[in-house]
Design a protein around this nucleic acid. Structure first.
Length: 271
DNA sequence: AGTGCGGCCTGTCCGC
DNA sequence: TGCGGACAGGCCGCAC
C-alpha cells in the first residue's frame, strides 16, 4: 500500500531522527523478505553514521560513508522510530539501533519489501537503474508520456503504473490521476492525445503533491514514522468508491479489473 | 520490445 | 461460531 506519498511521508518522518546518528547495533529477527536481508548488513552498518535519507521511486536510501542501505516497503511495510526499550511485535523484522537510545524498526507483515545494502552508487543498482523519471520532477511531463506512448496498445492505466514510464504511481493514485485528467483507464495508450497527456502529467503531480501534504493515504494500516495515519483518504474521488457518486457530476463510480488491478472511474466524465 | 500473467506473503472480510 | 476461499497489491521474472 505504500505508494510514493506514503514513502515520502516515511522519509520525512524518519530523517530528523536518524540523520547524523551512528549505528550501534543491527538486529535481524527475520531475514526472509522479498530478497534475503544480507547476512553482512550488521557488519556494514555498525559504527557508521547515517549521512542522509533519500528517496528514489518507492525506495528509501540510507546513505553512509561506505555504502547505502536500500529499503522498499512492499505493500505492507512500515518504518518507525521508537525508544530502544520498546519490545518488538510480530512482523517487526529488523531493528537498526542508534546511538541516542532510539531505534529504527522495520515492520512488514507480508514480507513483500526488502532491505539491501550496496557499496556502489545505489542508482546503478539493478533494482533502480531502469526506473523512469520522478513524477514530481521537470523531466516528467506530457511530452515525455506522449513520446514513449507511440504504438503502445496497453490500457493507459497500466502504462501509467509502469515504473519504466514514471515511478511511484501505484493503483490508488493511478485511479485518482486518471479521474482528475478525465481519462478512462481502459483507453489504449497509443490513442491518447498530446493534450490529454499534458493533463494527465499535471494530474499525477497534483494528486501526489496533495497526498504528500496530507501525510499519505491510510486505507487500513499505513502509519508514518511517528505513528500517525495519513489523511488523504478523505480526498479520494474514485478509489474504493464503487457505486458512490462522482464528486464532479454525481454519476455512480464504476469498477472493473484493468490489467489485473481493481480500477475505479466515472463513466460520465472520463472518456 | 511490449504485453500479460504467475507468484510471492499475511491479514481481513465474506459467505456458508 | 468456525472455516475456507477470495482479495488486497508492488513488482520481479518469465513466456509469448
Amino acid at each position: 500500500m505504500p505508494e510514493l506519498p506514503e514513502v515520502e511521508t516515511t522519509r520525512r518522518g524518519v530523517r530528523p531522527h536518524v540523520k547524523g546518528r551512528r549505528v550501534k547495533q543491527v538486529v535481524v529477527r527475520d531475514a526472509r523478505l522479498r530478497w534475503p536481508v544480507p547476512p553482512d548488513l550488521a557488519r556494514a552498518l555498525v559504527g557508521t553514521t547515517i549521512d542522509e535519507v533519500e528517496r528514489r521511486a518507492k525506495y528509501l536510501l540510507f546513505r553512509t560513508a561506505h555504502g547505502t542501505a536500500i529499503v522498499h516497503l512492499g505493500m505492507s511495510g512500515s518504518l518507525r522510530v521508537v525508544d530502544a526499550g520498546v519490545s518488538p511485535e510480530k512482523h517487526d523484522h529488523v531493528d537498526v539501533v542508534l546511538d541516542d537510545g532510539k531505534l529504527l524498526r522495520l515492520r512488514d507483515p507480508r514480507r513483500f519489501g526488502c532491505l539491501l545494502f550496496t557499496r556502489n552508487d545505489p542508482h546503478d543498482h539493478p533494482l533502480l537503474k531502469d526506473l523512469g523519471p520522478e513524477p514530481l520532477s521537470r523531466a516528467f511531463d506530457g511530452a515525455h508520456l506522449h513520446r514513449i506512448a507511440r504504438g503502445r496498445t496497453a490500457a493507459v492505466k497500466t502504462f501509467l503504473m509502469d515504473a519504466a514510464v514514471v515511478v511511484g504511481v501505484g493503483n490508488i493514485y493511478a485511479n485518482e490521476a486518471l479521474w482528475r485528467a478525465r481519462l478512462a483507464p481502459r483507453r489504449r495508450t497509443g490513442r491518447v492525445t498530446r493534450a490529454h497527456f499534458d493533463e494527465l502529467a499535471r494530474s499525477v503531480k497534483e494528486v501526489l503533491a496533495d497526498a504528500i501534504a496530507r501525510g499519505g493515504t491510510t486505507l487500513r494500516d499505513f502509519l508514518s514514522a511517528d505513528g500517525e495515519p495519513g489523511h488523504f483518504r478523505m480526498d479520494l474521488a474514485v478509489y474504493d468508491r464503487a457505486g458512490k457518486l462522482c464528486p464532479r457530476c454525481r454519476t455512480p463510480i464504476r469498477t472493473a479489473r484493468v490489467g489485473q488491478r481493481s480500477s475505479f472511474w466515472c463513466p460520465r466524465c472520463q472518456a
